[in-house]
């Protein structure tokens, strides 16, 4: 009976993706005024994702599309109702692995004020490594290097309330960086910032991806920010409705508009010029590309 037992199946971390979701479903119970169960809402509906180390992925979608709910699954704040999600080979429903998962995938949230724990920039950045039980000397090193990465070292002793929104959000990123994560999930990090702050944050995120090779998952409904991503997922009503490179996704202007999303102004202009009869290629992303295309046509 030598063949009766199957060879154990090993999950091979090396060839596996950093994040691997298979038919992820998240349902929550909706209650009416009396607290009786009114129905189930599927915030995330059979979503499958494959994200490799070093990817820069943008998740787009209108309000209520389930993109934030999906984000909260990625570091086990929420657990799937159905389906599985592997983070670096660890199942997010495995309670023993929860801290390893959170170490691997850091989260940055929308409101910078509501994620500041320390009263001084340094202390806030040190919060995560302190929780992880890192040696004091190494904490100080990590804090310093994280602050250098987001170019906030000169503010290390400042009180966060004195900083601008963009600076606060960069501190939040540094706080996550100090965990030495493989992946950072940013849930609409620029939604509460002014244009200058947005630029700062996006610049910091891109540098992390380019220089440190950290996987970035940027949840946003700002299309201009998604242009820098390697890949875009568009979500609506809990489903992934479109995916591809920014060029591929943004060339489907009508489909995006059906999902209540507006393409960047440049892309929209190029699209309108094309439908008006000009010879302009699909999926123009930057002003420069548009200028060149117009000159050529």
């Amino acid at each position: 009976m030598g063949v009766a037992y199957a060879a154990p199946i090993f999950i091979l971390n090396d060839i596996m993706n950093l994040l691997d979701a298979n038919k992820l479903v998240f349902e929550y119970v909706r209650r009416d005024k009396n607290g009786d169960v009114d129905g189930f809402i599927r915030a995330v509906d059979e979503v499958s994702l494959e994200i490799a180390q070093g990817d820069f992925v943008a998740v787009l979608g209108p309000n209520g599309s389930g993109k934030s709910t999906l984000a909260k699954h990625l570091n086990s704040i929420l657990r799937p109702t159905e389906g599985v999600l592997y983070v670096d080979g660890m199942d997010t429903t495995d309670s023993d692995k929860i801290w390893d998962i959170r170490k691997t995938v850091g989260m940055v949230f929308q409101n910078p004020e509501n994620q500041m724990i320390g009263t001084i920039v340094e202390e806030d950045v040190a919060f995560a490594p302190e929780n992880m039980g890192v040696d004091p000397k190494e904490i100080r090193e990590r804090v310093k290097e994280s602050l250098i990465t987001v170019e906030m070292l000169e503010h290390r002793k400042a009180s966060p309330s004195k900083l601008s929104g963009g600076q606060k959000q960069r501190i939040a990123i540094a706080g996550v960086l100090a965990m030495h994560p493989k992946c950072i999930v940013l849930d609409e990090p620029t939604a509460m910032l002014d244009p200058e702050g947005r630029k700062e944050v996006i610049r910091a995120i891109r540098a992390l991806n380019d220089v440190e090779n950290i996987t970035i998952i940027l949840i946003t409904h700002n299309m201009e920010e998604a242009v820098y991503a390697d890949r875009i997922y568009v979500m609506n009503k809990g489903h992934i409705v479109m995916k591809g490179t920014p060029r591929e996704v943004f060339s489907r202007v009508e489909e995006l508009e059906e999902n209540s999303l507006t393409v960047p102004v440049v892309t929209k202009l190029a699209y309108e010029l094309k439908t008006a009869g000009l010879n302009i290629p699909d999926g123009i992303l930057t002003k420069k590309e548009l200028c060149e295309a117009i000159c050529r046509s």
Binding site: I77, R102, M107, N111, I117, A128, N131, V176
Partner: peptide, 12 residues
């Protein structure tokens, strides 16, 4: 919000 932010930064 803060509780979620703390937990996702490994507070236990």
């Amino acid at each position: 919000d803060l509780a979620i932010a703390m937990e996702s930064r490994c507070y236990r």
